[in-house]
């Protein structure tokens, strides 16, 4: 075994030297594609902060655009990119399990405010699903699109898990969920002013329920209390929609 190890390292070194003459080889490697993804993410975040957090320059929008353009320029298949960066996608599993922590930390709020929290959770989540599906259905969206839109207000790892169960396109869902988060976090403060909702608890809970992680980040900018209620709403909505969506979706498709 020990004698094999240097040999394999040598082999991989040799293959990387060979690929210098054929640039497409190393530009298609997991090493390059994971580096590209991390770099785009870092630059996207820095750019977002430097430009004063303009909503359509959200790091997710800029970094995914940058990655997609690079892939097109280098003629890398999307399927190839996805399998090369699978390591990052894999971590969504443990990240979903990790959402138990904020839920655990803020669960005491559920005990003291059970009625408003549970009622809002049920009404808000069902409204988030049915309003979108009803609109999309009346605008003539196909069944596949309806399935992919259904979990849009849920945090991405849970939404992708739901898509595994009900069907639909994971790529469309990922894009739709991210856009929903960015749109929700941007328009929510304006809506709160318009309908005169001042309580930070209500603002936070609404942001977490309708705009998942992006909304939760926005809620933490409002106040710690808003952030706590957003984290709570994010976890509860994820679980509630994962439980009811497989049944609710039958009304539409």
């Amino acid at each position: 075994m020990t004698s094999n190890l240097p040999a394999s390292i040598h082999a991989s070194l040799a293959s990387s030297t060979v690929s210098v003459s054929e640039p497409s080889h190393w530009l298609h490697s997991p090493l390059f594609l994971i580096t590209l993804t991390l770099l785009a993410y870092q630059l996207g975040q820095t750019f977002y902060r430097r430009t004063g957090k303009i909503f359509f320059l959200h790091p997710l929008i800029t970094s995914s655009t940058a990655i997609a353009s690079t892939l097109m320029a280098l003629q890398v298949d999307y399927e190839h990119y996805f399998s090369a960066t699978y390591l990052l996608h894999f971590l969504l599993g443990p990240a979903t399990v990790a959402l138990a922590l904020p839920l655990h930390r803020y669960f005491h709020c559920v005990k003291t405010q059970a009625t408003p929290i549970v009622a809002t959770l049920v009404i808000g989540s069902l409204c988030a699903i049915t309003s979108t599906l009803w609109l999309a259905d009346s605008l003539g969206a196909s069944q596949d699109v309806l399935l992919s839109l259904a979990p849009k207000s849920v945090t991405t790892p849970i939404a992708l898990n739901i898509i595994d169960v009900i069907g639909g396109s994971p790529f469309l869902t990922a894009g739709v969920v991210v856009t929903t988060g960015v749109v929700g976090a941007t328009v929510a403060p304006l809506i709160f002013q318009l309908i005169k909702v001042k309580s930070h608890r209500i603002q936070g809970f609404t942001l977490g329920l309708t705009a998942h992680g992006v909304g939760t980040a926005k809620a933490f900018e409002i106040s710690g209390e808003a952030g706590a209620f957003a984290s709570l709403a994010l976890g509860l909505t994820g679980i509630f929609i994962a439980l009811v969506l497989p049944h609710v979706i039958q009304w539409f498709v």
Binding site: I67, M72, Y78
Partner: peptide, 28 residues
């Protein structure tokens, strides 16, 4: 960062979804 690999897929969607963009965008 973790959902970038899946998120980038929005730029490489099947043509069947592309003509449904108005419905997707408005309803969303």
């Amino acid at each position: 960062l973790l959902f970038l690999p899946a998120g980038v897929g929005i730029f490489f969607l099947d043509p069947e979804y592309l003509n449904q963009w108005p419905a997707i965008f408005v309803s969303m």
